[in-house]
Design a protein around this nucleic acid. Sequence first.
DNA 1: TGTTAGCACTCATAGCGCTTGAGTGCTAAC
DNA 2: GTTAGCACTCAAGCGCTATGAGTGCTAACA
Lengths: 349, 349
Amino acid sequence: MELDSRKKAILYAIIENYQETGEPVGSRTISKLEHFKFSPATIRNEMADLEEMGLIVQPHTSAGRIPTDKGYRLYVDKMLEEQKEEKKDLPALPMANLLSKRIDRVEELLVKMAQILASNTNYTTMVTGPHYRKNKLKFLQLSGMEDGKILAVVVLEGNIVKNNILTVEENLDPQELLNLSFLLNNKLNGLSLEEINLGLISQIKEEAGSHSALVTKILDAVAETFAQEESYPIYTSGAPNIFRYPELTGGDKASELISTLEEKKELGTAIGQLSESGSQQDIQVFIGDEVPVDSMKDCSVVTATYSLGEGVQGKIGIIGPKRMNYQKVVDTLKDTMNQLDQVFAKPEE
Amino acid sequence: MELDSRKKAILYAIIENYQETGEPVGSRTISKLEHFKFSPATIRNEMADLEEMGLIVQPHTSAGRIPTDKGYRLYVDKMLEEQKEEKKDLPALPMANLLSKRIDRVEELLVKMAQILASNTNYTTMVTGPHYRKNKLKFLQLSGMEDGKILAVVVLEGNIVKNNILTVEENLDPQELLNLSFLLNNKLNGLSLEEINLGLISQIKEEAGSHSALVTKILDAVAETFAQEESYPIYTSGAPNIFRYPELTGGDKASELISTLEEKKELGTAIGQLSESGSQQDIQVFIGDEVPVDSMKDCSVVTATYSLGEGVQGKIGIIGPKRMNYQKVVDTLKDTMNQLDQVFAKPEE
DNA sequence: TGTTAGCACTCATAGCGCTTGAGTGCTAAC
DNA sequence: GTTAGCACTCAAGCGCTATGAGTGCTAACA
């Protein structure tokens, strides 16, 4: 069967009407719309065809039609296609203020970003913490603290800073500590986790002489810092927004969704999958069953990859009902990415 | 009217039965219980009295009784009273493993603690980040990083560590940095935010000579560290548990509750109030209208103050329906507090 | 051949009346 | 003081009947 332009127009009209109302759309509703000069009967014929093609369905015999995943997919693909050409002007999000802040408070930035996106779109937002492509040790600082403890500060590329407070039995004078600090920096800087192997470790221990126990502790701290980065955190915001959409709150759905959002683990792995399967284009749309999280099969998810320069990047996902306003979400995300790029593309101030 | 022991027994029986079933409790149910050798009619007479006293109510004429806030209050007060004498043995929570971990990852500890409490009680748990009574600067470390940036590590009492990466125009050699570091530590150590006043600042700037601009930046970083600590974070866990209790999910209640939990601000101030109004005893129970958060007027909240040594303390709150198992919650919290105390009371290993 | 009017049909939803059963309060007897 | 008995109340469930939105199909029309 041919999907001519009239059928398309009807499909899109159904989708857009359903987006607003959440109710199945009947032939009469469509025929009363501006651009449609055909009678309900004609529309009905076309709708029967669209249903045959699997683009729309009736929830029950005497109801109007709602779009299927396939119908949405068609709509979204066409939309993304058109997007490439025209450049839309959206009211700018109040992200600018946010972005003028310090870079070293990445976490706060991400949380705020999630909040703004959630309240602006009325959907739920999740943001993965930054993922650092080149995870290398950049800098290591040891400082003695008065009570016999040592503060070890580990800095990775991308300016991830982690602190570890170590307790030592032996007593170190500042000069020894400085020497040790120098030795470790010398040996380890620029190396990734894999490159710090046993041979290197024993070599360092040897050179450290009597302080080899301390070196072990420090290296543990370094390893932990790397590990922490691998299990990067996930921030969510606007979870209660799902209550705006009755189709997401029937039965135990709301509970399951909220649980999924709270237990961020599953989300994390899912997002990982998204990343891998993702093509070059930065915006991806997952509709219904395409979402790789079971409790979200009634949702759609739009993801984007953000970048904070220095190869630091992560994912943003907007989670909403399948009848979400894809146009608005995609535009909003693009706008956000642009703003981020503008700020972080600047030569670092 | 006199609240004799039989009336009390009936009240408690109603409360405990209602805790389990969530359904109004009738006279027949009570009379069939072990210890009650009276007929339903007698129980009914007593129940009429209890209702007159405002301890129980009927949701509608032909229904059983449910406890009022006042009824719960009586029950809880008696329970707390008895607790003081007998020492209960609960199956220990799997907190021990957790507590054997490092102390310097307080945040992780608190999150895990919230999770364990939530899954163990089936209620929602919130934990305020540690509040440091004596907020004094303990240690300040400046390190030059290769790309012309300076890493400023600020350590407060209680081992709160914050990192700030500063960008400097001027070039500093390591020795100058060391001197500056020494100067700042000398001047600032042991001082609280209020004690770092303008006079002191200008004095430091003078001694720092040409690096006064840098000093300003560093002091800003210090101020920010203090400020961050004042808006201490709040962790929640087990929010979806509210869906277990129908009385909390009718209407928009679930949505409001989840929103409140997500927007932790209101919680924070409320918790603040709790702290202030709190007496010496560490466990407090808030029932229904006593809870100082509007969206939680249908809930009860049990709070405890935890302490991690060094005057570092915060609040834990368990949020559940008014028919929550107070006994279990209070016991669990006490057990947790004890475990924390045991670990942190040890001479710091 | 595409479009439309007309009509019979379906079915979710709402409203109505009925029954059921859990639970009560009251009274009178033990 | 306690209990048996009884009339009463009322939420909840069930079946029945509109109601109305919406459909598919057929036949007529341009």
